[in-house]
Amino acid sequence: MIMKEKRNITRRVALVGVMGALALALSYLETLIPAFPGFPPGAKPGFSNIVTMFLASCSGVGDAFFVTLIKALFAGITRGFTAMLMSGAGGALSTAAACILLRSRKNSLGYIGIGIICAVCHNIGQLITACLISGTPSLIWGYGPLLLLFAVITGFITGTVLKVIMPYLGRITDIKK
């Protein structure tokens, strides 16, 4: 019994560690994408969300939020305080949504729908943070429509990618999802 628990814990730590590193790598790669004109700087596709979504569904809620926290800290160290807040808020909302949606037994939404909702949550979190920090609520009207549209597209992509790799990732965690 104890051996099994220990092995599970070790596995979990290793899993979170690897996933965390992967999330950071994806985050970093995204910053290399030049800022699109018309989008607020810092609004990126959010491919690292694939990692948090995976953890949310196949591992623990705590693990998913842990990686979200790490992403925010990483953003803070590399890009500054504002970036940390934006990443943190967007990530928190997105991960929370992922936890709720991916862990529920109901199958009312497909991976694409879930991916889109998570992406939308991520962007909403970032937008609200940007408004509060800059003190200009008018950003909502300015960037809102564009970010929502953008989220539909990126959510579509991340959802699809997650579905595709899920069978392979499931093997790592011995869970059939």
Binding site: L102, L109, I112, I114, W141, P145, L148, V152, G159
Partner: peptide
Amino acid sequence: MKKLFRKNDLIVIAVILAAALVLLIPNL
């Protein structure tokens, strides 16, 4: 196992696009 795409997903997309349009109104 969850599917890739369900009818509800279209509802989600529609709602979000509608929200995007609604946000455009104050601008006009």
